[in-house]
Amino acid sequence: MDLWKPQPVGRLPRFRQSLSRKSCVLDQLLQHCLNALVLGGTYALLGIGLTLIFGIMRVVNFTHGELYSFGAYMMFMFVMLLHLDFFLSLVLAMLLGIALGAAIEFLLLRKLRGADIDTTMLVMIGAWIAMQNLEQLVWSGVAKSIKTPFPSSPLVMGALSVSWNRLFVLAVALGLILCTYALVNRTRLGRAMRATFQDPDTAALMGVDIGTIYMSTFALGSGLAAAAGALLGPIFVVTPTMGDLASLKAFAIVILGGLGNIVGATIGGFILAFIEELGAGYISSGYRDAMGFLLIIAILLVRPTGLFSRKERIG
């Protein structure tokens, strides 16, 4: 874990420098940590959706990033074109994400069940490209921005500051992560999901409707991706290719946290955010995106199944 701690080489205040310089360095560190915390929440949200789908269905879901941009575009449509309430739009965008996920499962994946992982992967890559191009056709390539009801001046705490919108995103993201965790670990549906994850054939023999489990898993994962897009769209700008980097990072988080592990993906999301933020702040901002992936390579060399992977039953 020492790898992602800040490397303050050459940046520590010298003895002769005044106290104010010292507090300035501390402020910067705290601001970086605050930024990373907010970013980590959304990374975790993206990661758990993907890890659920892979863990239970063994599907490498390349459309995850497209569900993310779909959520953002729905948000744009509801808020900016139909002038609906911001918070209502958020709920609608997530529900539509769930519906789209269910449709993808029904139209594409259902027929491929039992096909090998490469075939499914190719179909998902095709779906990803088709969805991205369709978005380009419908919305054009020009970036869109979404207005929010949050005050434009940030929340200020001494030298630190963070926008209200980002705090809201963090809160909702954490809420959704907790809900997902509770759903998987505390409900009947969740138990059926976990049973399917352990052994689909036995679960089916015990009366679990595997078809329903697969569809609800894919719909849930897609809904979470759409929610992440709908939450982040108003903070950033909305473009058809916004999902590419997001899905790349989601894959990284899932690998980091261990495939199929919700807690692992959550922690993985925060770790990635902290590495990026502190790496950009103290080492080199140009290599911001590379830094997270370098660490993932390092971790995989030591623990090839990810940081938090648990034992899987085989056969």
Partner: peptide, 20 residues
């Protein structure tokens, strides 16, 4: 003197450094 990827969306790290 900070740089960013052309498609980067979160620039908070660079801005915190510039502020400091």
């Amino acid at each position: 003197q900070e740089t960013m990827e052309p498609d980067a969306t979160d620039l908070s790290a660079q801005l915190a450094k510039i502020k400091a």
